[in-house]
C-alpha cells in the first residue's frame, strides 16, 4: 500500500502516439500504473510492451478502443479502473486535425474532429467526473489547444472543437470542483507530433516529451488552465484581445 508515483493509477485516452504516448511513458516511469486507450492496436501494444519490458509485474495495460464507440465507454471505463486497482487521473489526449485547404468545406473531416475532439472527450470525462465526484477526489486533464482561443480562418472546425472542449472542461470544473475533483485544461501550442508532421512554419514548436512533462506538472499542481509552453499565455491574451474587425484582416 505504499507508493511514490505522481498518480498511482492513471488512464490516458489517445495513448498510441504523440503527447498521449509520452504522457503514458512518463507516468509509468514514476512507478504508477497506467491504462492506455487507443484505436491503433499495433502502436498501442508496442508501447505497452516497451513500458512493461523488464518488469515482473505489468504496470501498463492496453485497451483498443475507437472513441467513436461512445456506447462502449462506460463498461470500458469500469474495466480499466478495475485492472488498475483505482483511478486518480484521466488524460484525454485523443485529437485529430485533418489537413484542409483554405477553401475546403469537408463535412467528413469536420465531423471527425467534433467526434474525436469533443464527443469522445465528453463520453470519457463524463464517466470520470461521476466517479471522481463519488470518490471525492481525482484529476481530469483535457488536452485542448491554443486554437480554441480564437476562430481562425485556417481551421474553422478544429478551432470550434477545441473551444467546445474548453467550455466543457470549464463547466465540468465548476460542476465537480467543489467535490474535490480537479479539472485541468491544457492548451498546447504547436507540439512536434504526428498530428503536426508536414506542417511548415510552426512557431515555438516543442517536443512531445517536453510537452508531456509540462502537462503532467500542471496536472499534479491541479492548475485550472495551463498553456504549454507557458509563454503562450501572454501571447494568447493579446490575440484574444484583438477586436474582431481587425482580427478579420490579419493573417492569423
Amino acid at each position: 500500500m505504499g507508493h511514490s508515483s505522481v498518480f498511482q493509477y492513471a488512464a490516458v485516452v489517445g495513448a498510441s502516439s504523440g503527447m498521449g504516448a509520452e504522457i503514458a511513458r512518463q507516468l509509468a516511469a514514476t512507478g504508477g500504473r497506467v491504462a492506455l486507450v487507443a484505436r491503433r492496436e499495433a502502436e498501442l501494444s508496442a508501447l505497452v510492451g516497451e513500458i512493461n519490458a523488464g518488469r515482473t509485474e505489468p504496470i501498463a495495460f492496453a485497451y483498443t478502443h475507437d472513441v467513436h464507440c461512445y456506447a462502449e465507454v462506460p463498461a470500458l471505463f469500469q474495466n480499466l479502473c478495475r485492472d488498475l486497482g483505482g483511478l486518480d487521473a484521466i488524460f484525454y489526449a485523443a485529437g485529430v486535425m485533418p489537413r484542409i485547404t483554405d477553401s475546403e468545406y469537408s463535412f467528413d473531416k469536420d465531423r471527425a474532429m467534433i467526434e474525436v475532439n469533443v464527443l469522445g472527450a465528453i463520453a470519457w470525462l463524463n464517466e470520470a467526473a461521476q466517479r471522481f465526484q463519488a470518490a471525492g477526489k481525482g484529476t481530469i486533464i483535457g488536452i485542448s489547444s491554443v486554437a480554441g482561443d480564437r476562430g481562425r480562418r485556417g481551421q474553422p472546425v478544429y478551432c470550434t472543437s477545441k473551444a467546445a472542449l474548453d467550455t466543457y472542461l470549464e463547466a465540468l470544473r465548476n460542476r465537480v470542483g467543489r467535490s474535490g475533483v480537479r479539472v485541468v485544461t491544457i492548451k498546447p501550442g504547436p507540439v512536434d507530433t504526428p498530428m503536426t508532421k508536414g506542417l511548415d512554419k510552426l512557431p515555438m514548436l516543442v517536443s512531445a516529451p517536453e510537452a508531456a512533462r509540462q502537462i503532467i506538472a500542471a496536472a499534479v499542481k491541479g492548475k485550472r488552465v495551463a498553456y504549454v509552453p507557458g509563454k503562450w499565455r501572454p501571447i494568447m491574451a493579446v490575440i484574444r484581445s484583438i477586436p474582431s474587425p481587425i482580427f478579420q484582416k490579419l493573417n492569423l
Binding site: 475507437d66 467513436h68 471527425a112 461521476q130 463519488a134
Partner: peptide, 21 residues
C-alpha cells in the same frame, strides 16, 4: 465517414454508476 460509427458499437453492460462510492 470511414471511421466506425457509434451505431455499430455494442453497448456492453456496466455496473450502476450511483453504486460507486
Amino acid at each position: 465517414i470511414e471511421l466506425t460509427g457509434p451505431e455499430t458499437c455494442p453497448q456492453r453492460p456496466f455496473l450502476p454508476r450511483d453504486h460507486a462510492e
